[in-house]
Simulated assay, not measured.
Amino acid sequence: MKARLWITLVAAVVLVAVAVGYTLHSARRVTATGAALTLDARALLFRAPDGRVTARSPDGQVTTGDRACDRFSAAAGTGLCLVATPGAVPTTTGIVLDGHLRETRRLQLPGIPSRAQVSPTGRFLSWTTFTTGDSYAASGTFSTATGILDARTGTFVVNIENLQLYVDGERYHAPDINVWGVTFAADDNTFYATLASRGRTYLVRGDFAEWSARTVRENVECPSLSPDGGRLAFKKRVGTGWRLYVLDLSTMAEHPLAESAEVDDQAVWFDDATVGYGRAGTVWTVPADGSGAPTRLVDGSSPAPHNGPNA
């Protein structure tokens, strides 16, 4: 009887200890989440595996917020969070965020989230959604809607396919035009994007003030402009998949990056020497000059291009 009582008391003590330990662990976990998260230029911002916006400081401290996104981008204290709304006709909610991840504007968009981008100055925000199909993998079977918001003037374009398009210098019209993967220059006017039509894919250079875009070259998808404005990281179709490349805009010379695996993402620049991207649920970086090897950073996706650890 005494032995049984002693065992019961020991078990109770163990259970209490476990409960206290779990409570302390939970408390520590909670202190790393919530309102402390900001769009700090000294932190790497990304989307955690559970969808929540997360920051990793240069010393390795990780802070996870309460804001969950399906796609995310941030620059210059402005964020863009895309959230899918399932249904018979799927839609996307675009949420514009301030430096403390507070909502400043909400946009109702067609389709399923695919790409998000904020310009270096934070003035322009762009997104791409799939309105039919769910990937770029099967050419000709998908349709996209790409929009732009001018946060300064409030100008909101749901789909930029009404751009004045020029292919090889000639005004271009076609019923199957798709434009996606916008990237912005620092002048708050120039942008690059992908144009697909009639089985061909082009890089186009756009002028926001003129509302026009002209082809630069073929076989460039999801471009990302370097901070110095002189190069584009992009994905290039090689065989049946995509490889990451960098294009020098002054010479039109291109070279592959050291990532040998297929990457279906719009790459970002951490600085003029480093390209980042998401692959298989992990954020990676690789040297922009084609040397070295990929470096794993964190589990997650949607790394913010101008908020990297070297900012």
Results as ranks from 00 to 15, higher is better:
residue 178 N to V: 13
residue 178 N to G: 13
residue 178 N to W: 11
residue 179 V to H: 03
residue 180 W to Q: 01
residue 180 W to C: 03
residue 180 W to P: 02
residue 181 G to E: 00
residue 182 V to H: 01
residue 184 F to A: 04
residue 184 F to T: 08
residue 185 A to Q: 00
residue 185 A to N: 04
residue 185 A to G: 07
residue 186 A to I: 05
residue 187 D to Y: 00
residue 187 D to W: 01
residue 189 N to M: 01
residue 189 N to C: 03
residue 191 F to Q: 01
residue 192 Y to P: 03
residue 192 Y to S: 00
residue 193 A to S: 12
residue 194 T to M: 07
residue 194 T to S: 08
residue 195 L to F: 05
residue 196 A to V: 07
residue 197 S to G: 13
residue 197 S to N: 10
residue 198 R to T: 07
residue 198 R to S: 04
residue 199 G to T: 10
residue 199 G to M: 06
residue 199 G to N: 04
residue 199 G to Y: 10
residue 200 R to E: 12
residue 201 T to S: 01
residue 201 T to F: 06
residue 202 Y to N: 10
residue 203 L to Y: 05
residue 204 V to M: 08
residue 205 R to C: 03
residue 205 R to T: 06
residue 205 R to G: 03
residue 206 G to H: 08
residue 206 G to E: 11
residue 206 G to V: 13
residue 208 F to G: 02
residue 208 F to S: 02
residue 208 F to V: 05
residue 209 A to N: 11
residue 210 E to A: 14
residue 213 A to L: 00
residue 213 A to N: 10
residue 213 A to M: 11
residue 214 R to S: 04
residue 216 V to P: 07
residue 216 V to F: 07
residue 216 V to W: 00
residue 216 V to E: 10
residue 217 R to Y: 08
residue 218 E to T: 14
residue 218 E to G: 10
residue 220 V to S: 00
residue 220 V to Q: 08
residue 220 V to L: 10
residue 220 V to I: 13
residue 220 V to P: 09
residue 221 E to T: 14
residue 221 E to A: 15
residue 222 C to V: 03
residue 222 C to D: 10
residue 222 C to Q: 00
residue 222 C to Y: 06
residue 223 P to G: 02
residue 223 P to W: 04
residue 223 P to Y: 11
residue 224 S to H: 02
residue 224 S to K: 08
residue 224 S to V: 00
residue 224 S to C: 03
residue 226 S to R: 05
residue 226 S to F: 02
residue 226 S to D: 04
residue 227 P to I: 07
residue 229 G to P: 08
residue 229 G to E: 04
residue 230 G to K: 09
residue 230 G to N: 10
residue 231 R to G: 03
residue 231 R to V: 01
residue 232 L to P: 02
residue 232 L to I: 00
residue 232 L to S: 06
residue 232 L to F: 03
residue 233 A to P: 12
residue 233 A to G: 10
residue 234 F to A: 10
residue 234 F to D: 11
residue 235 K to P: 03
residue 235 K to I: 15
residue 236 K to M: 12
residue 237 R to K: 15
residue 237 R to C: 07
residue 238 V to K: 13
residue 238 V to E: 15
residue 238 V to T: 15
residue 240 T to K: 15
residue 241 G to T: 14
residue 241 G to F: 04
residue 242 W to T: 11
residue 243 R to A: 15
residue 244 L to T: 15
residue 244 L to I: 15
residue 244 L to F: 15
residue 245 Y to P: 05
residue 246 V to P: 12
residue 246 V to Y: 14
residue 246 V to E: 14
residue 247 L to M: 13
residue 247 L to P: 11
residue 247 L to Q: 06
residue 247 L to T: 04
residue 247 L to H: 08
residue 248 D to S: 11
residue 249 L to G: 09
residue 250 S to G: 14
residue 250 S to K: 15
residue 250 S to W: 06
residue 252 M to S: 11
residue 256 P to S: 11
residue 256 P to E: 12
residue 256 P to L: 02
residue 256 P to Y: 10
residue 256 P to W: 08
residue 257 L to R: 09
residue 258 A to N: 02
residue 258 A to T: 08
residue 259 E to A: 09
residue 260 S to K: 15
residue 261 A to T: 15
residue 261 A to D: 15
residue 262 E to M: 05
residue 262 E to G: 04
